[in-house]
Amino acid sequence: METIDIFSYFLLLLLLLSGIKVVTTSNVIHAAIFLVFTLATTAILFILLSAEFVALVLVLVYIGAVIVLFLFGVMITRAPLGPNAELDNDQNKLFATLISLSIFGIFTYILLQTFDSTVVISEGTSTKLLGEILLSRFVFPFELVSFVLLGALIGGITLARKDNALMDEDQI
């Protein structure tokens, strides 16, 4: 077993542990921090898989922007910042465990039966090549996504805006 294999197994373990922490911790802020952890390990995994640009995007977009947005969300909705036993819906726990375990089981069964090839770890991907493909072969989806983002922007503003004309006095 090579060093890189050991390293990647360790990485995957870290990924899963922090992922589990995200959904089990009773502290809202901790959950967000563990999500940062999960995403960071994913980014390292991407670099291992020679997808440097994607890793970078993940760090910039997720860790840089989305998590901050989440923290804003947590604060605006006045979630209790300390440990909070109310965070989970206890009656769902048993079924949720069963369902997620069976989904995991089905996935694993299929994956073990279907894929057994190895991952080629090359020198890395040229970002220039990625950009060229993105703007030639995928230019239509690329433009489409820009519209989706524009829509999301407008939608977010419209939804979150405090419309004074429509607001009641007691709803602040």
């Binding site: 819906n89 769902n92 079924f95 949720a96 369902i99 069976s102 989904i103 089905i106 069964y109 299929i110």
Partner: peptide, 20 residues
């Protein structure tokens, strides 16, 4: 919503088991 999702996922699991 969560109950709906649960029903949905149970359906997904049952159908995938049938297929498998």
């Amino acid at each position: 919503t969560q109950q709906y999702l649960m029903y949905f996922l149970v359906g997904v699991i049952v159908i995938s088991l049938i297929i498998l």
